[in-house]
Design a protein around this nucleic acid. Structure first.
Length: 710
RNA sequence: UGCGGGAUAGGAUAAUGGCAGUCCACGGGGCUCAUAUCCCCGAGGCCCAGGUUCGACUCCUGGUCCCGCAACCA
């Protein structure tokens, strides 16, 4: 089944995956929030009524564990992070209509109500399972509260995951030699009754749901396998104090598993928005509940049933690591509680740093605060994160690439076009000259608008952003081709026409770029002499006349200089710790302390196999003669005795070694390197030397020429 | 083994089965309104092997290689 194109006459809710209130934000996290914000804005530009909501995820064992380590209450710990997040998002122009958190009454009450509904409808049953327990401190040890030995690989592991060994998920009761992560006391397993949600009975429904689902292909396809292999029922309770109490089980330590109440925050946050602005402005129930099919028979909610319903448009924007929660557990819960189902799930790829994954423990990351402290405008990284690669593709961040995109596209294309057009208009006409949009320009703007609209309906922010920049590119070409600076005297009418067209294009660019570059687009809007906010403008505005008067603009974007990039890249290298894997033992920690050595290249991430190494035939060689190569700066022609034969080898050492003194020197030679011709001289092998100075590697003892190095 | 996502010019990144496009870098030319910016021209590419088709980057089959997933890392 297919949904109607946006804009529809039903309200939409766009959500972002809840940030977990435990740790700082880096630009990898930012990708989903920026994308969510840009997507919500883009829908509004199309004329879709949209609410953009999210909130902090306050519960769960990591919060409880880390709070305990810091000696504060989980609530205080999580609230602290919540406030940081709530303050950080606006700095990146991520403006939620409502940003709450899961520990607020709106969410806790709604969660209990929904769980009660599930329970009463018979979707929940009880089962006895083995749970780790600390008898000394009289405490249950769910998930990360327990540590021990992985039964599969024997490595040290956390209760729910062998995080440093084989990476396997561990079921409760599996971990061996359990120890409390809090007290260090040995733990034991005790039988305990927990609640399970019958996800398995939603198999048919979910299969149909995935067929209807829009968004990225990974979100639609990945869960299929899981469903086909048979769905496991889901343990939705934990033995903890921190969390939302299971309804009707007062006095017991049982709280709901964090992934139950987390997605419900999407609903709760929308509800808070309605409470603030009034149901006349935005009614959460219209989106989440109204016209939902009856919950009694999950399988009955098939494509036809949904197609006939006037339900709201729910779009979830998440990272690809939480696809399962949003395409299996969450829709099952919604269905069981009689809510509407999501229309689309957009699952983004991760952001890598110079080719390798972010690592918060090694401080290998670009932190949100750091980025801002460097003085960069938030719109720049918004542009990079939303328009580099497809949404579900992993994208690589490096300061070099960042510079390239900013300087090329934002400074050179978009910023330059806007500036030259508006400056010309302001200087010559005091604003928009007297004319109307030409046929050619109007149809080019029309094309950009259509591209933008199609992109939003395809959930492609990249294409939406490209539509705006490509239009500015057209503007540059148009002004260049028509040379209005040569027309002002000869053909003033024609000059006015050209500049009018350019101002019109600039206006359209402002509207189309606004979702991705909210701050810069608004600035451009103001430069055009427009009143109000560019974010209130919709697509029609692209072809509406610009205002008559405006003054000289200033530059929208500033070039990022090369030395700046070098600095930033060096800082990043320096702050990132050594690229070792897993636990640092005593020995390697000592090594790390030795010296900072700022100029060294990092050790290559990729390990080669011993077999690969054995492919190298490395020999001791004695240099018998060395002479410079005519015309080359550094190259020398060497005659080297490698025992079995005498080789001619070319090496880049001329300026750095006194060639006359080299004869008799023992050196290390790669003997089976393919031959090469350098400056017309054949080189049969390679002389190993260290660094810029080409410090020749020699033998410490007196190994004979031809001795194999191993 | 399973599943998902990939593989396109030196690098990066697009393309309802119908001319393989864009950005950076490279070579050549032009403009001076614009921030040494912009415009034009050029060179250079679809992982491999089959198949379907009038026609395949696209669909199918079989390989190779990379990344990820399999209950809480965005």
């Amino acid at each position: 089944m297919s949904h109607d194109d946006f804009p529809t006459d039903r309200p939409a809710v766009v959500t972002c995956g809840l940030p977990y209130a435990n740790g700082d934000l880096h630009i990898g996290h930012l990708r989903t929030y920026v994308s969510g914000d840009a997507y919500a804005r883009a829908l509004e530009t199309l004329g879709q009524e949209t609410a953009f909501v999210s909130g902090s995820d306050m519960h769960g064992t990591p919060v409880a564990v880390n709070a305990e380590k810091e000696g504060v209450s989980p609530e205080e710990f999580a609230l602290d992070h919540h406030e940081t997040y709530a303050g950080t998002f606006p700095k990146f122009n991520v403006e939620f209509d409502n940003y709450g958190h899961t520990h607020e009454p709106t969410n806790t009450e709604l969660t209990r109500e929904i769980v009660r509904t599930l329970d009463e409808a018979g979707h929940v049953y009880e089962k006895e399972i083995q749970v780790a327990y600390d008898p000394t401190d009289d405490q249950w040890l769910p998930d990360r509260y327990v540590e021990g030995t992985c039964p599969y690989c024997g490595e040290q592991a956390r209760g729910d995951e062998c995080d440093e060994g084989c990476g396997r998920h561990l079921e409760p009761g599996e971990i061996e030699d359990p120890v409390s992560a809090i007290s260090g006391n040995p733990a034991e397993y005790r039988e305990r009754t927990h609640k399970f949600f019958r996800v398995s009975e939603f198999e048919d429904y979910l299969t149909g749901f995935l067929d209807r689902l829009e968004g990225t292909s990974n979100a639609k396809n990945q869960p299929r396998e899981w469903i086909e292999n048979g769905l496991q029922d889901w343990c939705i309770t934990r033995d903890m104090d921190w969390g939302i109490d299971y309804p009707g089980e007062d006095g017991d330590d049982l709280v709901l598993y964090v992934w139950v109440d987390a997605p419900i925050e999407y609903v709760a946050s929308t509800k808070q928005y309605t409470e603030r602005v009034g149901a006349d402005t935005f009614d959460w129930e219209t989106v989440w509940k109204a016209n939902a099919p009856d919950a009694d028979d999950p399988a009955a909610a098939d494509a036809e049933t949904w197609a006939g319903r006037d339900t709201g448009e729910i779009v979830h924007i998440i990272g690809r690591d939480i696809i399962q929660h949003h395409t299996v557990f969450w829709p099952s819960m919604l269905r069981a509680a009689g809510y509407n189902e999501p229309r689309a799930v957009m699952a983004s790829g991760f952001v890598n740093l110079d080719g390798a994954a972010f690592s918060t423990s090694r401080d290998r990351a670009v932190w949100a605060d750091e980025y801002l402290d460097e003085g960069f405008d938030p719109d720049l990284v918004r542009y990079y994160l939303t328009t580099t690669g497809g949404f579900q593709q992993d994208v690589d961040f490096s300061w070099e690439k960042f510079q390239e995109r900013v300087n090329g596209e934002l400074v050179g294309t978009l910023g330059n076009f806007a500036y030259r057009s508006l400056l010309f208009a302001a200087r010559n006409y005091g604003g928009t000259p007297d004319a109307t949009t030409s046929e050619e320009v109007a149809s080019r703007i029309e094309e950009a608008v259509e591209d933008f609209e199609a992109a939003v309906n395809d959930y492609s922010l990249k294409r939406a952003g490209d539509a705006a920049v490509a239009l500015a590119g057209f503007g540059n070409e148009y002004i260049q081709r028509n040379e209005p600076w040569n027309l002002t005297d000869d053909d003033p009418d024609r000059a006015e026409q050209v500049i009018y067209d350019c101002v019109q294009v600039a206006k359209a660019v402002a509207v189309l770029a606004a979702p991705i570059l909210p701050g810069k687009a608004q600035r451009l809007w103001e430069q055009l002499g427009e009143d109000g906010s560019v974010h209130d403008a919709n697509l029609e505005a692209c072809l509406e006349s610009p205002p008559g008067d405006f003054g000289e603009p200033d530059e929208l974007f500033e070039k990022i200089e090369d030395d700046r990039v070098e600095e930033l890249s060096a800082e990043m290298e320096a702050s990132a710790g050594p690229a070792d894997d897993g636990e640092t033992d005593g020995e390697s920690a000592d090594d790390a302390e030795d010296e900072p050595a700022p100029d060294l290249e990092p050790i290559a991430d990729d390990r080669i196999s011993f077999e690969d190494f054995q492919d190298l035939d490395i020999r001791v060689g004695e240099i018998e003669a060395a002479e410079p190569i005519e015309g080359a700066d550094d190259l020398a022609r060497l005659e080297v005795d490698i025992g079995v034969e005498r080789r001619q080898i070319v090496a880049g050492i001329k300026q750095l070694h006194d060639l006359d003194e080299l004869a008799g020197t023992r050196a290390v030679i790669v003997a089976n390197l393919e031959k090469a011709e350098l400056f017309g001289v054949e080189s049969n092998g390679m002389l190993l030397a260290a660094g810029e100075d080409a410090d020749i590697l020699t033998t410490h003892g007196d190994s004979a020429p031809g001795t194999k190095v191993r």
